[in-house]
Design a protein around this nucleic acid. Structure first.
Lengths: 123, 123
DNA sequence: CGGTATCCGCGCCGATACTG
DNA sequence: CAGTATCGGCGCGGATACCG
């Protein structure tokens, strides 16, 4: 297949944004940064994520070497996920963005309200 | 209404990631950070973006107070987009992530290849 | 030149059912 | 407990046509 998907540029940041832009990946990383966690525990704490999306997200993160999947057979079977050093470093690289978001959140909301008010006035 | 939905958390970073996760927003911001730019010039340099998506993206960024839209009537009419200080600060907050992406890109590709090789071996 | 309006396909994701 | 398989809707975005 020639064109799998939006080519954009081979700009390296796009690979990362495809992951980071996903709603769940960041939440999973943030949670695992606190402590390793099991599947259903993760599911409960993330709240809103479906079983399928959590599985898919974890598989992607594992694939990229950002989390590890450790299986402990027994009754009941246990699977523990944890961040790799690479995953930790990504979480760290995300911090400035999170900071920015927290600092500008209010101003952005006001901008949006103002913009919509202007739109309404134009109509 | 108990839980409207797609709430995740009111975590402020989600608002930002909805924008940043969008394929085009970051490219537009990066381009406008170099210099203000007109619509079609932006279209040419971004390469791959449809007219519709560029318009939508710019509207969102304007709405959030990240870019300004300046119209100069004449023949032909001109519309110039530029980053606001807030937009510049977002671009700066993105830098560590871009750095991280550049530094880990190669390792991630290798992880993916290894993962897929393991998958193939399991089959 | 710089858009908006409309249509429509396809890909993502939630729901459901089943397995080791 | 920790998943995979399958289906179906719906929303995102490309293509196209048209306007100031």
């Amino acid at each position: 297949m020639p064109a799998p998907r939006t080519v954009n540029h081979d700009c390296p940041i796009r690979d990362v944004l495809d992951r980071v832009g996903d709603a769940w990946s960041v939440l999973v990383i943030a949670e695992l940064d606190k402590a390793p966690c099991r599947f259903n525990a993760l599911r409960r704490v993330i709240d809103g994520v479906s079983q399928r999306m959590l599985a898919v997200t974890l598989r992607q993160l594992e694939r990229d070497g950002l989390v590890t999947r450790r299986v402990t057979d027994g009754r009941p079977p246990q699977v523990t996920y944890a961040l790799t050093p690479r995953g930790v470093s990504l979480h760290a690289a995300l911090a400035p963005l999170a900071d920015w978001a927290a600092r500008h959140q209010q101003a952005i909301r006001e901008s949006r309200a103002a913009f919509e008010a202007a739109q309404a006035a134009a109509a």
